[in-house]
């Protein structure tokens, strides 16, 4: 078994580290690099507590080998706030009491930001489906759905104030303001697609 040297850019900071092939990304982040905001809740890849953004997409970091992420850009919960300002999803969770014990919350918020990037104006049902990959045992989800709605409103208001629409900002393809409910837009920001 050979160890591998890898580079991860986490929340804008480059890190070089040496890992065993079997080291899971979540353990590299937590144990090697100290990004302990990302939590581990299961080994069956169902609970979503470990969700981070890998090259801008929400993934379960317990189901990615650290070596697979070599060279990738990763965003964790620690990178959500900017310049001391909460991300609208963070504010939404606080304002709507979208968390209790907080353990699922980082993963839940990383999944929610991914959802909102794809669908800036989701219905409650779409939020529930969009968070299918994240389990919460405390809140009964209702205030999480409220939190994501709250964030969507906030981001929409912010975008309008900036003279744009979040959908435009996100994928340059649609307009959230005039689109039909349920019309899902798919961002083409996968980097390696096409």
């Amino acid at each position: 078994m050979t160890e591998h040297d890898i580079t991860l850019t986490v929340n804008g900071t480059d890190h070089e580290l040496t890992v065993e092939p079997r080291t899971l990304l979540v353990h590299a982040l937590r144990d090697e690099l100290g990004y302990t905001g990302t939590n581990v809740g299961c080994e069956s890849s169902l609970c979503g507590a470990c969700t981070v953004h890998l090259d801008d997409d929400a993934v379960k970091s317990c189901t990615v080998l650290a070596v697979q992420a070599d060279g990738a850009t990763i965003e964790t919960v620690e990178g959500l706030a900017e310049d001391g300002e909460f991300h609208p999803v963070q504010s939404g969770f606080q304002e709507e009491h979208g968390l209790q014990c907080g353990y699922c919350t980082p993963g839940m918020m990383m999944a929610a930001t991914d959802l909102l990037e794809e669908n800036p104006d989701p219905s409650r049902e779409e939020i529930r489906e969009g968070l299918e990959g994240n389990l919460c045992r405390c809140t009964g989800y209702q205030n999480i759905v409220n939190a994501v709605e709250n964030a969507a409103d906030e981001m929409h208001a912010g975008a309008v104030a900036d003279g744009g629409c979040p959908a435009d900002a996100a994928d340059g393809s649609g307009s959230c303001c005039g689109s039909d409910a349920g019309d899902v837009r798919w961002p083409e920001d996968g980097g390696e697609s096409e």
Binding site: S45, G48, T51, L54, D57, A58, V59, K60, T63, V64, A111, D114, L115, E118, G130, E132, G133, N134
Partner: peptide, 9 residues
Amino acid sequence: VGDRQVRNR
């Protein structure tokens, strides 16, 4: 298939 994180990966 799966959930959004699974579909991303």
